[in-house]
């Protein structure tokens, strides 16, 4: 395996009862790059995400991370190896405060998480770092707010801060700007650019504006398989991509079904 690739999949296949959501995908994510997965609804993007983060077990094929076979590793172990994901539906801990959301991630590396006999005050030493991370995503002033009370855009920003707390080598972002207003989209895009400096990012993104701005490399998926791969100019000039996106309205029924299958359990 070449050392230039952080993540490589080879002939990755995921079948759900008689339906192939991911069909022989070879993906090579270069170290230090921002790699985007795009494709119409039902192309298998989220399924690939769930396979990479072990929330789903592949039917066939292998996944290598830094040259190591991680095809059968458990989801929590992946995170400790340095692969941390975000979710399509904003994944925060609603009843915890904003600060606690980030702190619970920071806590993971402290090795005190099983200490049921110690006071939670020992966690206060992580507050400074948590505030720094919140500041980076523009949420410092909301540190004490209960997370459920945050706006949607801010919850997504919090999710990124929480993911960053683990200082992952590879960040997997599942539609980070989905459902956001214009200003939020730009802010999050800038944020992703900023945090990509010393890590690799693989993102699923619908917003082509964001993709064009951020992605070094783009893989276009269609019906579970790779349609094409390349830089933005290359990919956007490809007539097959235009067709996949604009569609010929032949298969409108099928993507709906597959979309449902992609909702993580």
């Amino acid at each position: 395996m070449s050392a230039d690739y952080v993540l490589q999949t080879s002939n990755l296949v995921k079948e759900f009862k008689g339906f192939t959501a991911v069909d022989g995908v070879d993906l090579n994510v270069e170290r230090g790059s921002i790699h985007a997965l795009i494709g119409p609804n039902g192309a298998g993007k989220t399924t690939i995400f769930n396979l990479l983060t072990k929330f789903l077990i592949p039917t066939r094929g292998t996944i290598h991370y830094n040259g190591r076979d991680i095809t059968r590793v458990r989801p929590a172990a992946i995170a400790r190896l340095g692969v941390v994901r975000s979710f399509q539906i904003s994944a925060v801990f609603p009843q915890l405060s904003v600060l606690e959301n980030v702190r619970v991630a920071l806590q993971q590396k402290e090795g005190i998480s099983f200490c049921f006999w110690r006071s939670e005050r020992v966690l206060e030493r992580l507050d400074a770092r948590a505030l720094e991370l919140l500041d980076a995503v523009g949420l410092a002033e909301f540190a004490r707010v209960r997370t459920v009370d945050l706006s949607y855009g801010r919850k997504r920003a919090l999710e990124i801060a929480t993911t960053l707390a683990l200082d992952p080598e590879l960040m997997l972002l599942d539609e980070p700007t989905q459902g956001m207003g214009h200003e939020d989209v730009d802010r999050v895009a800038d944020l992703i650019k900023k945090v990509s400096r010393d890590r690799t990012i693989l993102m699923v993104e619908h917003n082509l504006h964001v993709v064009s701005k951020l992605a070094d490399r783009i893989t276009v998926l269609q019906r579970g398989a790779v349609l094409t791969e390349g830089g933005y100019d290359e990919v956007s000039a490809d007539p097959r991509v235009m067709e996949a996106y604009l569609g010929t309205s032949v298969d409108d029924g099928e993507p709906e079904t597959s979309l449902k299958l992609e909702v993580p359990a």
């Binding site: 983060t53 929330f55 989801p75 929590a76 172990a77 995170a79 400790r80 941390v84 994901r85 979710f87 994944a91 925060v92 801990f93 609603p94 009843q95 915890l96 619970v104 991630a105 993971q108 998480s113 929480t162 683990l166 993580p264 359990a265």
Partner: peptide, 15 residues
């Protein structure tokens, strides 16, 4: 508490 609130997320944070 994090697990109770969102188990999948807690898992993805390495727990």
């Amino acid at each position: 508490k994090a697990i109770r609130e969102n188990e999948a997320r807690a898992m993805s944070l390495g727990y």
